[in-house]
């Protein structure tokens, strides 16, 4: 029965998503179509990628507030190099991924070696990345490089007339890789162990330092990749891109059933957490009369609901133990 309890949050998340989709299908014409579902993926591909990185961070017991800023920085560097210096995307994309990973690695090292709360270190990282955007340019840089436009516009037809974008493929590959990493590699299991108890992990002889730094590196890398996908989506670089994205990401991870105290969580849950955010936006746009800010309120409410649910579940578990 304890195995059931483990999956409660994820079951709640998945059923909530299905419920919302069914409700939407009954209420709105044209809601019930594969394309609506696929659009969720198309519009949230970058969110999905960041959320995957964030899931690892939160499972390890930390938090990363720099993700939105790293996305913005990535769009900015990509745009300026490709557009203003005419660099080839083949060099630019690996370069921005490397920069994102290095940023994450640096933050992870400071968090681990100097024992400063992840929250404040990644906050500094966020300031830094946003600030660097403006060092490059205060204006929006529009991209018309053929490679980027091709990536943005290519539609991959699926049987049945619906389509997805290349970004969706990237995001799905990331999700699949993350599930594999989380479940089938030592690194993944060490992340769970550290989230469960860092002290124990240390005494069990696990490579705590390496794992923790790697977690933030991974999150930085995911943010940079999300930034690349975001560049495909927006075809521009701008310092105000993805403002507040860190909150959407954390919300998606929590709604996906990952415990903020660390140690428990599933990438699949995160996937549905992102999809729930997407479907809320879709429903609100289908509703027409509701304005966009309702998205934030509903997400805030859901966040509250899920945090309280986590609290109740962990309290029940404590009672069960004694």
């Amino acid at each position: 029965m304890s195995i059931n309890r483990k999956y409660v949050p994820i079951v709640v998340t998945t059923s909530l998503f299905l419920l919302m989709f069914i409700a939407g299908s009954f209420r709105y014409n044209g809601f019930f179509s594969p394309q609506v579902l696929l659009n969720l993926l198309i519009d949230n591909a970058f969110l999905l990628i960041v959320a995957v990185g964030m899931s690892f961070v939160i499972i390890s017991g930390g938090i990363d507030l720099s993700v939105g800023a790293v996305i913005a920085l990535t769009t900015m560097i990509s745009a300026s190099l490709v557009q203003q210096l005419n660099w080839s995307p083949i060099i630019v994309i690996p370069l921005v991924l490397l920069i994102g990973a290095l940023l994450g690695c640096g933050m992870g090292a400071i968090i681990h070696y100097f024992k400063i709360q992840p929250f404040i270190v990644t906050l500094a990282g966020m300031f830094l990345a946003r600030g660097l955007c403006y060092v490059i340019s205060i204006q929006t840089i529009t991209i018309d490089n053929p490679f980027y436009t091709a990536m943005a516009q290519t539609k991959i037809r699926l049987p049945g007339g619906s389509f997805i974008s290349i970004s969706v493929i990237i995001a799905l590959v990331v999700v699949a890789a993350a599930i594999y990493i989380a479940h089938y590699t030592s690194f993944g299991r060490n992340v769970y162990a550290i989230g469960g108890s860092e002290q124990s992990a240390l005494l069990m002889g696990l490579p705590v330092a390496k794992t923790k730094i790697l977690v933030y590196t991974l999150s930085g890398l995911c943010s940079a990749l999300a930034g690349v996908v975001f560049t495909f989506y927006m075809l521009s670089g701008y310092g105000l891109h993805a403002v507040g994205m860190e909150l959407d990401t954390i919300a998606a991870v929590v709604i996906g059933g990952t415990l903020l105290t660390g140690g428990v969580g599933y990438i699949v849950g995160t996937f549905f957490g992102v999809m729930i955010q997407g479907i809320i936006q879709t429903i609100i746009s289908f509703e027409g009369t509701l304005s966009s800010w309702w998205t934030k309120i509903v997400i805030g409410l859901l966040l509250c609901l899920f945090i309280l649910l986590q609290k109740v579940l962990s309290a029940r578990q404590a009672i069960f133990k004694s």
Binding site: G244, L247, S291, S292, W293, T295, K296, I297, C304
Partner: peptide
């Protein structure tokens, strides 16, 4: 923090 922005816009 998340919901408050929405409330303000509301």
């Amino acid at each position: 923090m998340v919901a408050g922005r929405g409330i303000a816009q509301l």
